[in-house]
Design a protein around this nucleic acid. Structure first.
Lengths: 193, 193
DNA sequence: ACCGGATTCGGAATCCGGTTCCGTATTGAG
DNA sequence: CTCAATACGGAACCGGATTCCGAATCCGGT
């Protein structure tokens, strides 16, 4: 259970896996998720059997591709968002990236979306992403960018909403980000009415 | 092209169509969209061919069911939301209904969602629904419940987001409605920072 | 009430795409 | 170089949507 019996997979096998994943990323980004397993196999220059060896299921393949996108977002967040001293801008930047990634890569949307929407992410990368969300949230609470009752779940729910919306009207998610962040801001003075 | 040559469909045919749609509504509501055409046919007491006569495609059947849900929402909106003098409450009530309808009927979510998310709705009912959104929006602008730059599209985008989110975490959409409406409210005084 | 063409029905056959299976080819340690 | 282990390719299999067509049913006219 706790060992790693899968030591040293055969070298070329590993290479093939990479190639399949690579090709799948491109195809999904290009043609959405109507791409079929046989096409991926052909494009990667392997047989379907090989695709299935590395990704036991179509769904698994999609998730692997999604994991890639997460990684992109993660890298971007670290490089561009966290460093931004303006927390609001950092949040906008973070959420916008999610929308942008979806504007390309329509196909993997559902997978990414599902992962973002739930609070129980599977992959390693997703966990790190969650950590970044937490960091931004903490900053926002500390510097008053976010209202005191804000929760990470809120942030990820919004991320999920952005991802979902991007499927129907590319670009509209910018408006959603604006509204949502506005909604998470504290009312500066007390309300009068 | 512009005539209605399909006058007077045979009486029982119309009856069957209704029955199939009826049964499909229940099955989808109960078991989500993994219900298969043959099941619908069996449950309706007809052959698959008959189902396909009335709904040329699985997708078409789903959309027909979705149309039903729209109608429900429409009726509810007219009866419960519009009469509410508090515009904010009326909006909450309206959006909440969308979330609730999705909490049941998981299966048709994607269809409803797509229709809500886009600004180009197909069905008659969807158009009427859009009108209601417009009415609520106008009220909100007039009485200051909504910030002046609010647009119907915003409202429907939020509705779409509610629908989408409800697929992952039942109930969380309440929080989204709160945040979104807060975000669409005018800042009472000018911002200071 | 009865007839005949139009329309609808039922469900077997077909098509499609994901998934499985297994004989063959490749890898790499000894 | 040899052999066991591992990976490969792609034909076969399967489930589920969709199509097809002879049989059954409707309905206006007689």
């Amino acid at each position: 259970m706790s060992k790693k019996p899968d030591r040293k997979a055969r070298a070329d096998a590993e290479h093939n896996r990479g190639r399949v994943l690579e090709v799948a990323c491109e195809l999904f980004a290009e043609h959405g998720d109507e791409v079929q397993m046989a096409e991926v196999a052909r494009a990667a220059g392997v047989g379907v059997g090989t695709v299935y060896r590395h990704f036991p299921t179509r769904q698994a393949l999609i998730e692997a591709v999604a994991e890639r996108r997460f990684a992109e977002i993660l890298a971007f967040a670290r490089a561009e968002c966290l460093p931004n001293p303006d927390t609001r801008q950092a949040l906008v930047c973070f959420l916008s990236r999610i929308g942008e990634v979806h504007d390309r890569a329509r196909g993997v949307s559902s997978a990414i979306e599902a992962a973002l929407g739930s609070t129980e992410p599977r992959g390693q990368v997703a966990v790190e992403l969650l950590a970044i969300g937490q960091a931004l949230l903490d900053r926002g609470l500390a510097d008053g960018t976010l209202r005191p009752d804000s929760k990470v779940d809120d942030l990820y729910m919004i991320a999920g909403a952005v991802a979902a919306i991007s499927r129907y009207a590319a670009g509209d998610w910018r408006r959603l980000i604006d509204i949502a962040l506005e909604g998470m801001s504290p009312r500066l003075p007390a309300r009068s009415e």
